[in-house]
């Protein structure tokens, strides 16, 4: 039970980080970014390349990856925004097609350059926390803490700085923001890059636990979408709450009710769907105006 809880927390922490990235692009720009999971994948794959460059010093390589990978991924995202999405005026339908195209391109790039195998990245440090009942990886505990710290940073950025103010203004009324001399194009490019960068950070954190693989983006994409909407669009706390809900639910259902894991997952999926049916604005979202 406790073990299921811990595992759920690790998944939830990483999921929250990925989802916050999606929530930003979704909330501010109103685009359905199907390629978000691929940004996550790119983060993990790049982390492998960076750590490979420092075979003797996993901690140094990892620290570097934590900085370099999100920046690279954010740069790719900004490029995609300026070259494609901006020209589509961020209209929903064409954006879906464009991001599906982007998904294919990124996936093929990873397959061709990185290869089809799942490749491991060494954790920066390796110690086990020996609990009375079982052992647990110390790195996993650190992932939870790091993700929380990053979420705190994002929250501070959004609510305490001018950048956050500009973003919120743009989200609420694009035209009005323009009237107040906000460079909306710049904001959009920045938000798209930031969202992708957050997904990449989440991936770098998780990659020593899971492995880098060129198809690893699919699950985070679906789960992030679910988390963002369940939590309530634009609500950071809601996203965190929903990530906890999704991360913990099927593990707990399975352990507590002795359901077979696949059945537990079905039940969890339906339950979460019903939450949305009866609370369409999400857990902590405001009712639609």
């Amino acid at each position: 039970m406790l073990l299921a809880l811990m595992e759920g927390l690790v998944s939830a922490a990483v999921l929250a980080l990925t989802a916050v990235g999606l929530s930003l692009t979704f909330g501010v720009m109103r685009v359905v970014n199907v390629a978000h999971g691929e940004f996550f994948m790119l983060g993990a794959v790049l982390a492998w390349f960076v750590t490979q460059a420092f075979p003797g010093a996993p901690a140094l390589g990892f620290a570097l990856a934590l900085v370099v990978c999100p920046l690279c991924v954010a740069a790719i995202a900004v490029l995609a925004d300026l070259l494609v999405l901006k020209r589509l005026a961020y209209e929903p339908a064409p954006t879906i097609v464009a991001t599906i195209g982007l998904l294919y391109v990124l996936q093929q790039a990873a397959l061709s350059l990185f290869g089809p195998d799942a490749r491991p990245v060494a954790p920066p440090f390796d110690f086990r926390v020996q609990l009375p009942w079982f052992g647990y990886s110390g790195y996993k505990l650190c992932v939870i803490l790091a993700a929380l710290a990053l979420l705190g940073l994002v929250w501070a950025l959004l609510s305490r700085t001018r950048i956050g103010l500009v973003m919120r203004a743009t989200r609420i009324d694009r035209e009005m923001a323009r009237a107040f001399a906000i460079n909306v194009d710049l904001v959009y490019a920045g938000v798209f890059g930031l969202g992708a960068g957050l997904a990449a950070v989440a991936a770098v954190l998780i990659v020593p636990i899971r492995q880098a693989h060129y198809l690893m983006g699919a699950d985070p994409l679906l789960l992030s979408f679910i988390v963002v909407i369940i939590g309530g669009l634009g609500s950071l706390r809601g996203t965190l709450a929903a990530a906890l809900l999704i991360g913990l639910m099927d593990g707990l259902l399975s352990t507590a009710l002795f359901l077979p894991p696949t059945v537990a997952r079905i039940a969890a999926t339906l339950l979460v769907a019903l939450v949305l049916v009866f609370r369409p604005q999400g857990l902590l979202g405001k009712a639609a105006a």
């Binding site: 979704f26 669009l233 049916v277 639609a288």
Partner: peptide, 24 residues
């Protein structure tokens, strides 16, 4: 009962449950 993106996610989740049911 939902609309817009919430409709998109609810239908997605029902379909995922169906897919899992086929596996189960």
């Amino acid at each position: 009962r939902t609309a817009g993106v919430a409709f998109m996610i609810v239908t997605l989740m029902f379909a995922q449950a169906g897919w899992l049911a086929i596996l189960a």
